[in-house]
Amino acid sequence: MESLPKDIRNGMKVYDSEDHEIGTVEDYQFSDEDPNQPGPETSAASVDQREPDTLINTLGRAFAPTDQLSSEVQERLMREGFIRLDADGLFAADRYITPDQIGSVTGDRVVLNVKKSDLMKAE
């Protein structure tokens, strides 16, 4: 299984497979099955002010109350890890990026191996 690159951080610019800037990293979650990251991990920016790591608290930090993702999809994202993309555009819905959709991470850039339209949308 692929895992989320460890150099991901909030605010990084995200580009699709056609090198179009599509937004920024709003939050991320490492895989809960990654042996190098014991237990659920979220972005370092939220660690100091977060509540204890319980399933409910972790899900609350990872998914906005307005996200209409099925429990199966949420469980998959928590298991595999993900990036929550703050999509560009006034009415653009946030999207979720899975580790297998990441082509490279260099400097302040996350480059995907898919188009924006292929990403899971937070409805």
Rank of each mutant, 00 (worst) to 15 (best):
A45C: 08
A45F: 03
D100V: 12
I102V: 13
A122C: 14
D53P: 04
E51A: 13
K115H: 07
D32T: 11
I8F: 07
L4E: 04
P5Y: 01
L90N: 10
P99H: 04
T66D: 10
T54F: 00
D7F: 04
I56E: 04
H20T: 11
E21T: 01
P99F: 03
D108L: 08
F82W: 12
R61W: 11
S70R: 03
M1R: 15
D27V: 07
Q37T: 15
P65C: 13
T58I: 15
S43L: 08
E33F: 11
V25H: 00
D53C: 04
G11K: 06
D86T: 12
D32H: 08
I102L: 01
D48T: 12
L77M: 05
E80Q: 08
A45N: 11
T98H: 05
F82G: 01
A92I: 03
A45P: 00
F63H: 04
T106D: 03
Q68D: 15
F91A: 11
S104Q: 15
M78W: 12
S31A: 05
V47F: 14
K6T: 15
G39V: 06
G107A: 01
E2G: 03
I22T: 02
Q49I: 15
L55H: 09
D27I: 14
E33A: 14
Q49S: 08
D100Q: 11
L112Y: 01
D118M: 05
A92D: 06
V110H: 02
D27A: 12
E2S: 05
V110M: 07
G39N: 01
L85V: 09
A62H: 11
L77G: 00
L85G: 02
Q74R: 15
D7N: 10
D34G: 07
L77N: 03
F63M: 05
A44I: 13
F63P: 07
D27Y: 09
T58Q: 11
R9H: 13
L55G: 00
S46E: 05
L119C: 04
T58D: 11
V14R: 04
A87C: 09
Q29N: 13
F63S: 07
T106L: 03
E33D: 10
R9C: 12
I83P: 01
A45W: 12
I22R: 01
R84E: 14
L69D: 05
M120A: 08
T24G: 03
I8N: 06
N36A: 13
S46T: 11
S31R: 02
E18N: 14
D32N: 10
Q74C: 08
F91M: 14
E123F: 08
D16M: 02
R50V: 09
R61G: 14
R76G: 01
N113G: 06
R61L: 14
R50T: 12
S3L: 13
D108V: 06
I22G: 03
T106Q: 11
K6A: 11
K115F: 05
R109E: 02
R84K: 15
A87S: 15
E18H: 12
I97H: 00
